[in-house]
Design a protein around this nucleic acid. Structure first.
Length: 960
RNA sequence: GCCCAGAUGGUGGAAUUGGUAGACACGAGGGACUUAAAAUCCCUUGGCCAGUGAUGGCCGUACGGGUUCGAUUCCCGUUCCGGGCACCA
């Protein structure tokens, strides 16, 4: 009886031994090179871990194990992003404290993760919601509050330096309130009166990346613009560094591109415009070359200039327009691009041409970008063009050959003309007037910038689209701010008193007076004298003051967690100098690309700030980034006839396409049928288990199911993101139970390239399971005894082995795990055919497979090395073995079969010595008997021979 | 609209980056062992055509062109799917 591959026992055994032996515990070791592997830590949701989560974790675990086998000291930690909206909303619904549900979810995650056999050092686990962790989130916030960004040095500096500067300049106010306001304009964490994304349904403000298509990312509720006093982070100050840093890191082009878009650098010029009333304003343009084509100016409706510029005659019209704009939601403005606007009554004077052009107010100009005012060049900007057509304003073409009768010419290519149209159209400054005619657009831009600068008409300016991050939320389940208010002026709670712990509340909703949930806390006031938190009722504005009621957003805790993993139990510092110097930054970061404009920007910003402080040792936190694809789920739908409790099999429905809504609708005998999610566990293939769904929810209990001719109920299926609400979540637990963790790990990697998204499909998992069984059976004879012997491996054995080492090594380096698993499959078949029992080979294979399938690797490693005396105790685990090097000498081929081509078509195959030179190859090929019939009546034009690749002979008919 | 990435058998996907397209796996078909099933093993499997047969020929990497002795790979154009940004001046 051959020995069975009992994965359940093997995996249980090794989970136990790994824990007992602390196999994965990591400590700083100056004698070894470090390698830091990191996964984006999960938010522990109530749905548990699904098969998509481990995809990235497995990928990084393979790399971590591989690097470790190569002798590096690998840090591979895991933790939880534990603050979040779902737990809070669940608390509002059920009254259960978010901490309770969050910790329960964490336990469940841990249990699931443990089954898969990761090499995490759990001693370093962090949870963002525990005080010993968020102490350092609060600490970093205070550091940001007490810093400003020095434009010249391009780095953060202590705020005291700025105060000194103001004092030296004599601009330092004496009034405390004025001082506070002045510094607020410079602090990196500041309290700002800004337009925010307010989500009434969630009762909180949202950051820009949390708003998608004008609705909230979570829940899809409408979002409106509202002016509110909020904590903000001056992320925009770091725009240039965030952009420059991208060049130094090894991330995918697409994600760098996304970040570049989000930062949105544009180089241009700011030009001073005087108005007919003697006022002036500044416009920003990237197309300085088009100054001669300006026919009007436009102000953003929210701009403060509007009020100043508007003439009495136009006042009523402008007010009405602004009222209209205010009434529009963000979403409406995004979808509806119809041209609107109003004349302000005033005129602006083009400093280049001296022309008087009307100033309009229109919503297509945004207050938040540039100066909130533009010069309009309808001929060369499509938005200005639409506006000009609508209001019948002149259009002056400035590029040779550009036809602007139907649409604007926006391209930045061509030769400039009409600039000026005639000599008297260009105003002279210090005797010089601007002339761009005949230049290319690029030259014209540069020339205009020079002119504007030289004659002080404006200045060259770089603008960024990146906005400051709104850093406060009106929620309960988040980090409290270590801030109290003294006469309305924010004060930092002393650093030694941190952390300020999240107070207990009995209600998680806003208070009746509209305060955020923390307003419900009774013990939430700061006693300045005794330096402690006291009852709110004691507030006296003398020595006891109210504490901030806002909490920090989700990204606060996730922005520097990778630093905390380096030194997670340190209560003196976020991370010790020693640990930070050793681990530096993350070498390999694995996570989803959906964080491109959120976490991955905030984290880089946060790290750059800490780098300026000297806490972080590298300017960029994540050297290499791999974005694992999403594993999607198959959602299943049943169709309910509208206003009935009847469900109709999908194949009986008629489809109708609604062009307007770009959606299909389904009908059954004239009645429309609406799709309803059905849990995937009730579906096999596309057939619904009607009995099972009746037991699922009350909705289906007494429903009538109209079946097809085969007596089956067919569901329709769609590939969607895995989510609890879509009832399409597949847990990894079942796979572990039926096939084992090693098979799960192998299969998830075998599905395809890591970066690709793909629907989950268990078809094919048998292939990986079979492979492991074959791998297992290499080691055991028919009686279940280990069949390794000390026989000399054959040349064939060594060739197969070294081919495998070479392939697997290079594939892991390139994260091409699916192809390295294929290589294993090939190799195992070869060894099996070779009946290889050589210890040399059998001892190496477990090391090679260990990153992918650690449990079976350990078991076989133990079996094959069991008879030996250990050189050191660490060799008890395959994790501490040494990754083998391949040797070229075993891979050398003595002869190679190559196709001999005539004019690019393969005509015959023949054997060549592997070391044949191209000349020898041609000689052999042309003199071969098979070649003669192809050469008959032909002459050789050219020959190409590439050793080990191809022999190509180009011929053409002989001409006399 | 702009930017980025992609399209290969029935399916997931390989292809040393310009050198015999379809590795590996799934599925399907056939066979062996077995009372039977499971498990295991072997063979076939891109399409079309010719041949009893070994085999041979043609077509084939979304579509249309180009460069090249040779193109899945490079260039130009088109179509389709995915991702990001979107009145950003």
């Amino acid at each position: 009886m051959a020995k069975e591959y009992n994965f359940r026992e093997i995996e249980k055994k090794w989970h136990r031994l790994w824990t007992e032996r602390q196999t994965y515990k990591v400590t700083e070791d100056e004698n070894r090179k470090k390698f830091y592997v990191l996964n984006m830590f999960p938010y522990p949701s109530g749905a548990g871990l699904h098969v998509g989560h481990p995809l990235g974790y497995i990928a990084s675990d393979i790399f971590a194990r591989y690097k470790r086998l190569q002798g590096l000291n690998v840090l591979n930690p895991m933790g939880y992003d534990a603050y979040g909206l779902p737990a809070e909303q669940y608390a509002i619904k059920t009254g259960q404290h978010p901490e309770k549900t969050t910790f329960a979810n964490i336990d469940r995650y841990r249990e699931q993760l443990d089954k898969i056999g990761f090499s995490f050092d759990w001693d370093r686990e962090v949870r963002t919601c525990t005080p010993d962790y968020y102490k350092w989130t609060q600490w970093a916030f205070q550091k940001m509050y007490n810093s400003y960004f020095d434009e010249e040095l391009q780095k953060a500096q202590p705020i005291e330096k700025l105060i000194e500067k103001f004092k030296a300049e004599g601009t330092w106010p004496s009034d405390e309130k004025e001082q506070s306001e002045l510094l607020m304009e410079h602090r990196i964490a500041y309290l700002g009166e800004t337009m925010v994304n307010w989500c009434p349904a969630l009762g909180t403000v949202l950051a820009n990346d949390e708003v998608v298509n004008g609705v909230s990312e979570r829940g899809g509720y409408p979002v409106e613009q509202k002016k509110m006093r909020q904590w903000c982070l001056r992320v925009s100050a770091y725009s240039q560094r965030l952009l420059d840093g991208l060049e130094t890191i090894d991330w995918s082009e697409s994600i760098k591109e996304t970040q570049k878009n989000w930062i949105g650098r544009s180089e241009g010029a700011e030009v001073e415009i005087k108005t007919s009333e003697g006022l002036s304003f500044t416009i920003f343009t990237t197309r300085a070359d088009t100054m001669f084509g300006v026919t009007f100016f436009v102000l953003a409706p929210e701009s403060e200039l509007v009020d100043k510029v508007t003439t009495p005659e136009q006042r009523a019209a402008v007010d009405e327009y602004i009222k209209y704009v205010k009434g529009r939601t963000e979403r409406e403005r995004m979808i509806d691009h119809t041209v609107t606007g109003v004349f302000s009554g005033a005129y602006g004077i083009n400093p280049i041409t001296g022309d008087k052009c009307p100033i309009y107010v229109a919503e297509y100009v945004l207050a938040g970008y540039g100066t909130g005012a533009i010069m309009a060049v309808p001929a060369h900007d499509s938005r200005d063009y639409a506006f000009a057509k609508h209001f019948n304003l002149p259009i002056i073409p400035l590029v040779e050959g550009a036809d602007v009768s139907q649409e604007s010419y926006d391209a930045k290519e061509g030769i400039v003309m009409n600039s000026p149209a005639s000599e008297d159209k260009s105003v002279k400054y210090d005797g010089e007037s601007l002339c761009l005619n005949g230049l290319t657009i690029k030259e014209a831009i540069a020339e205009t910038k020079r002119f504007v600068k030289a004659h002080k008409l404006g200045r060259v300016k770089v603008n960024y689209r990146l906005r400051d991050a709104i850093f406060s939320r009106q929620r309960y389940w988040g980090e409290p701010f270590p801030v109290y208010y003294k006469k309305g002026i924010p004060q930092m709670i002393p650093e030694e008193c941190l952390p300020i712990e999240l107070p207990q509340v009995d209600k998680f909703l806003p208070t009746e007076t509209g305060e955020p949930p923390l307003g419900n806390a009774t013990k939430w006031a700061w006693d300045e004298k005794n330096r402690k938190i006291v009852e709110k009722s004691l507030i006296n504005e003398v020595n006891v003051f109210p504490i901030e009621l806002y909490t920090m957003p989700g990204f606060a805790g996730s922005s520097a967690y990778y630093l905390r993993y380096m030194d997670p139990h340190n209560d003196k510092a976020l991370v010790s100098e020693k640990a930070a110097s050793y681990w530096q930054n993350v070498d390999l970061y694995v996570g989803g690309s959906e964080h491109a404009t959120g976490h991955l920007i905030y984290s880089r910003f946060w790290n750059k700030f800490l780098f300026d402080l000297g806490v972080s040792k590298k300017d960029e936190p994540f050297q290499k980034l791999i974005n694992q694809g999403m594993i999607q789920g198959w959602s299943s739908f049943v169709y309910r006839l509208r206003n009935t409790n009847k469900f109709v099999s999908f194949d009986l429905l008629e489809e109708q396409y609604d062009d307007a809504k770009k959606k299909s609708f389904y009908y059954y005998q004239g009645t429309e049928a609406d799709p309803v999610y059905a849990d995937i566990s009730m579906v096999s293939g596309n057939v619904l288990n009607v009995e099972k769904i009746r037991e699922w929810t009350a909705e289906f209990r007494d429903a009538e199911f109209i079946l097809n001719a085969n007596g089956q109920y067919i569901v329709s299926q769609a590939i969607e993101k895995m989510s609890k609400s879509k009832y399409n979540v597949v847990n990894p637990d079942d796979i572990c139970e039926n096939y084992g963790a090693d098979t799960l790990r192998l299969y998830e990697m075998f599905l395809g390239p890591i970066e690709q998204s793909k629907p989950w499909d268990v078809a094919g998992i048998d292939g990986c399971f079979r492979f492991l069984k074959k791998f297992w059976s290499l080691y055991w004879d028919r009686d279940g005894n280990l069949q390794a012997d000390d026989s000399e491996p054959t040349a064939e054995n060594m060739k197969s082995l070294h081919k495998l080492i070479k392939k697997v090594t290079s594939d892991i380096e390139e994260f091409s795990y699916n192809t390295s698993i294929s290589a294993f499959m090939v190799a195992v078949n070869e060894f099996s055919q070779q009946k290889c029992t050589s210890r040399t080979v059998l001892q190496t294979l477990p090391i090679l497979i260990a990153p992918f399938a650690p449990h079976i690797a350990e078991e076989l490693w133990e079996a094959i090395s069991g008879g030996q005396t250990w050189q050191s105790s660490r060799q008890q685990s395959v994790c501490d073995a040494q990754w083998p090097q391949y040797e070229e000498k075993y891979l050398v081929e003595t002869s190679v079969k190559l196709g001999v081509q005539f004019n690019g078509k393969v005509r015959f195959d023949m054997l060549f010595p592997a070391d044949a030179t191209p000349d020898q190859m041609v000689e052999m090929a042309t003199s071969a008997p098979e070649a003669q019939k192809h050469l008959e009546g032909m002459q050789i034009v050219k020959t190409i021979a590439i050793p080990k690749r191809i022999v190509n002979i180009v011929v053409k008919p002989k001409t006399e």
